[in-house]
Amino acid sequence: MQLPSILTPDFGLLFWMLLAFGIIFVLLWRYGFPIIIKMVEERKAYIDESLAKAREANEKLAHIQAESDAILREARDKQAAILREAMATKEAILSEAREKAQAEGHKILEEAKAQINAERENALNSLRGEVAGISVKVAEQLLLSQLQGPTAQEDYVERLLQQVEQEQA
């Protein structure tokens, strides 16, 4: 039994098939598939690289944001601290001034008191002198009025002498 022609190897067809396949293989090998594959692989590498770069940039951006936040917070803290300090200083100055004023006032009061005392002393002293003078004068006038007459004077001398004698004894 004869095989159908599609099952019978044919040398001529084999020759043409090998030739055609060989030609398209060589042409596609030189100018076809490797170019496409290489380009796609390179593009893939490029995309991967770009993604990595984007991720890195994002991270950097996040880092910068955090950093700026930190700086801002620090500045705010510093501002608060300065404000607090200023407030404290103000308080301190005020209280010091108040203290100083009080002390000054006190001192002035003391001085005034001392001066008043001194003035009073002076006044008392002068008053005492004047009173002594007046009393001497009064005593003089009194003596004068009592020693009027010859006996009175004699009596007085007598008494004085007696007094001296008593003292000598």
């Binding site: 001529g12 067809l13 043409w16 098939m17 055609a20 396949f21 030609i23 398209i24 042409l27 596609l28 100018y31 076809g32 598939f33 496409i36």
Partner: peptide, 17 residues
Amino acid sequence: NVVQIWIVALVVLCVIL
């Protein structure tokens, strides 16, 4: 078949190249 092979070869070459 040979003509068909060359038609295919031409088409494949045109498409890929």
